[in-house]
Design a protein around this nucleic acid. Structure first.
Length: 430
RNA sequence: GGCCCUGUCGUCUAGUGGUCUAGGACACUUGGUUCUCAUCCAAGAGAUCGUGAGUCCAAAUCUCACCGGGGCCA
């Protein structure tokens, strides 16, 4: 293979909040290019104006920015219509495509039997939509660089695909070929769902006289309940996951390992190490399942790596000494940023205490604790002196102070709350 | 229905004919640290490599069939 510069692109449609699978495609395309000092292009595929969402483009840029993905070039397809129109017209002129004026068809009754050859293909019309004139009895194929396998089809199963719609906007099939060629994309990386339309693209490449780039189809991320991961089942939008309290670093690390693996099974990656270690042969062939537990684990790992200041910042807290103390108590105890509130609410408001949670000796425990705190003594000494069971003693304190059984260490918590407030909460139950 | 991709512990995976009585990670179980929870540490359980044939001295690794999973179909 000749030594051409590697150039990849991420080509999302601005149709709504970015899906975690799209983001993964961006990471892979980015790493593939940057591993060899190639270029990474961001291309907005906005040729379906009906589905476009306002602010969609800005949202894509913003999200990529959060993950530190930077692009070398930026294009918008709707600004390039001329290019697609010319290509389509050329194909018509050269007998590789034809105008079609068929009415938009409805779903057919039997669902499946369909006529692959369009009735307009030999009418020599001079206006309308432009469709590809697919030949009969030919073979088309390519070698997929993700699954590392030659894949081929007979053109007899390929329909006369629409290339240019009547509104002069291209379909994906035309735009993707024209753009990838024009932008000198060396490696096309896309979702597995595009595999079946690859023969169409191959034909378009051929008729336009373009070199076919390397093409690879990524696995689909699956839902634990089966089927492709979808927006319907829980939060799969990148923004949704961020809102849930997952750190970008954790999301990145988790998602690149769904469908790609290094030979040594290393678990922890950041953008730089991923780019450095990236290797095409690490692509997986079968569909991975989106596993929350693993994501949570990664998130915990990255939360624990943060400095107190960084964590305070991520939690949108003021950098006060009280908050620092609180945050340092919960850093080992949260899996997601959103766990913070439930774990620490007792610091900010008096808890509701269910007295049924107390042990049988709680009054004795609380009384001695109050004495101890008033005289500023180490509570462990109080426990020993009175021959209390350590666990029971602190649990009663915990219930009185926080109202719940799972909390940060209670001595430190009382220190943060302040002696006065701590005593007040204990005295309530005497 | 047609076409295409795919199949190693529950999950993510290592593995490319012998070193595999199949390795790692998450989850799980147990023990240790500890005022609870969590962290951390240690140990354990968990996969006859989808099934059945075949090739070979030798197969998770090659071939075929079947079955399962996934995708696409103006």
């Amino acid at each position: 293979m000749s030594k051409v510069k590697i150039c990849t692109r991420f080509a999302p449609s601005p149709t709504g909040s970015m899906h975690i699978g799209n983001l993964r495609t961006a990471f892979y395309a980015y790493a593939l290019a940057k591993h060899s000092n190639g270029d990474f292009i961001l291309r907005i595929e906005d040729t379906d104006k009906k589905r476009e969402k306002e602010g969609g483009v800005e949202d894509i840029k913003r999200l990529l920015g959060i993950f530190n993905i930077k692009w070398d070039e930026f294009y918008v397809q709707s600004e390039r219509l001329d290019l697609y129109n010319k290509a389509a017209e050329r194909l018509v002129k050269e007998g590789r495509a034809f105008y079609c004026q068929c009415e938009a068809k409805n779903a057919k009754e039997d669902g499946f039997s369909k006529d692959l050859r369009d009735p307009c293909r030999d009418k020599n019309l001079t206006s309308g939509a432009i469709k590809l004139k697919v030949p009969d009895n030919e073979g088309v194929g390519f070698t997929d660089f993700v699954i590392n396998k030659k894949v081929s089809w007979s053109t007899n199963i390929v329909g006369d695909a629409t290339l240019l719609k009547t509104d002069k906007f291209p379909t994906y099939h035309l735009a993707v070929v024209v753009d990838d060629n024009d932008m000198k994309i060396s490696h096309v990386l896309r979702g597995h769902d595009w595999m079946p339309s690859t023969p169409i693209h191959l034909l378009v490449y051929k008729y336009l006289g373009f070199d076919v780039p390397q093409i690879g189809h990524l696995t689909d991320i699956m839902d634990p309940d089966g089927g492709k991961l979808s927006k319907r089942k829980g939060s799969t939008s990148v923004q949704g996951l961020l809102d849930e309290g997952y750190l970008p670093d954790a999301l990145f690390n988790f998602v690149i390992l769904l469908g790609w693996a290094p030979k040594n099974n290393q678990e922890l990656f950041n953008l730089n190490s991923f780019v450095k270690d990236f290797d095409q042969s690490g692509f997986q062939k079968s569909n991975p399942v989106f596993n929350r537990d693993k994501l949570d684990w990664f998130n915990g790992q990255y939360i624990r790596k943060l400095s107190i200041e960084e964590l305070i910042n991520k939690l949108n807290l003021e950098n006060t000494s009280k908050n620092k103390s609180i945050v340092s108590l919960i850093q080992d105890r949260i899996k997601k940023l959103s766990d913070f509130n439930s774990l620490t609410s007792f610091f900010f408001e008096k808890p509701e205490v269910d007295t049924k949670l107390f042990g049988e000796n709680y009054k004795k425990h609380l009384r001695k604790a109050i004495e101890g705190i008033q005289s500023e003594r180490d509570l462990m000494e109080v426990v020993k002196e009175n021959d209390f069971k350590t666990g029971d003693f602190f649990m009663d304190l915990r219930i009185a102070i926080t109202g719940v059984k799972f909390t940060p260490p209670i001595n430190e918590s009382i220190a943060i709350l302040g002696k006065e407030e701590g005593l007040a909460r204990l005295n309530k139950f005497i």
